[in-house]
Design a binder for these strands. Structure first.
Lengths: 173, 173
DNA sequence: TATTGTTATACTCTATAACTATA
DNA sequence: TATAGTTATAGAGTATAACAATA
């Protein structure tokens, strides 16, 4: 909501921004003060999330998997035989929006919809062999490029503490 | 990307989900296993961010301010006299998208665009008196309802550690 | 020629209602 | 009657190109 994906350099329109000013009302034309914004958890959380997703996409460029697609593959692998409603709702994806997502994954032969014999309204979801292979490669990329970078930045212990706090917020806030 | 704003209850379609099964292939029809998903920082980060924004909106319902609008008011208050480009780019908002946002805030008499005398292309942004008053009330709501809730959940020290780590990710990742 | 604010536009993500086929 | 998957659609949020006024 607050933040977009592109950063932009600040201008600094005058030739010598450090020199004398015309009058006292003119502010110094350099970086703005974030002020209380840098203490707003929501603001920092959003900016951090965008950075993490951006990095995830870069790490996954060769496999063309978005964070959402990766989460679907992971969940289907862990819970084979569940239907669309169960997978979607666990991920917080609304069923209507899940249809196009699955169409995409299925068209790439990463997962398959199988009509359930128990309840012929349901589509059971499973990973294809290719889906399993791609997911295995994706996990490796995430571990060696994405998570490794985070561990490097924060340290293993801090990364785990961060995850624990975010989980608490996600489940209890 | 991964997560929507509404949660949904899982079904549990059979009358007695704990009792005997038809055959060994049928899975237990209760909660799904998140598996590695709960270790994915991006996934947890996104879900936490949605919860925090949701709570922010609830706390701000009386003032009808979104996180993005709050961030604009905060930044304009801290940096009066800056133009649209400077405020927008600092927040990561693209200039074209900032126009409608400002139209909204200006129509509610919370901030004003003033044609700069130095550079008549620029619109200098300032908070109106009403804007200052509303922002003051917003800050109070955020402190007493929103941040207080977070401190209650995490503890003051943890909340600060969380903020520090997220800031590091936002700026260095 | 370059920049500011703006318009137009498009694409993604999210959300709701309603249809169909099954139960 | 209710549920699963689907379609259609609408609204945010985000992205790019291009224009008028001004520098």
């Amino acid at each position: 909501m607050t933040v977009s994906k592109t950063a932009e350099k600040s201008s600094g329109k005058s030739a010598d921004p450090a020199k004398g000013r015309k009058d006292a009302t003119e502010v110094q034309s350099e970086a703005l003060q974030l002020g209380e914004l840098s203490e707003q958890l929501g603001y920092v959380l959003k900016r951090a999330q965008l950075k993490v997703f951006e990095n995830f996409l870069r790490c996954m460029a060769s496999l063309q998997l978005t964070p959402a697609q990766f989460s679907v593959l992971l969940l289907v692998e862990k819970n084979p035989g569940r239907n669309q409603t169960e997978i979607a709702s666990t991920l917080g994806i609304l069923r209507p929006n899940f249809v196009a997502m699955l169409d995409n994954l299925e068209s790439r032969d990463l997962c398959a919809r199988i009509r359930s014999t128990n309840d012929r309204r349901s589509h059971i979801l499973v990973l294809t062999d290719k889906g399993k292979a791609v997911l295995a490669r994706a996990k490796k990329l995430v571990a060696t490029k994405h998570e490794a970078r985070l561990n490097e930045l924060l340290g293993q212990a801090n990364r785990e503490a961060l995850l624990a706090m975010l989980s608490k917020i996600a489940s209890e806030f």
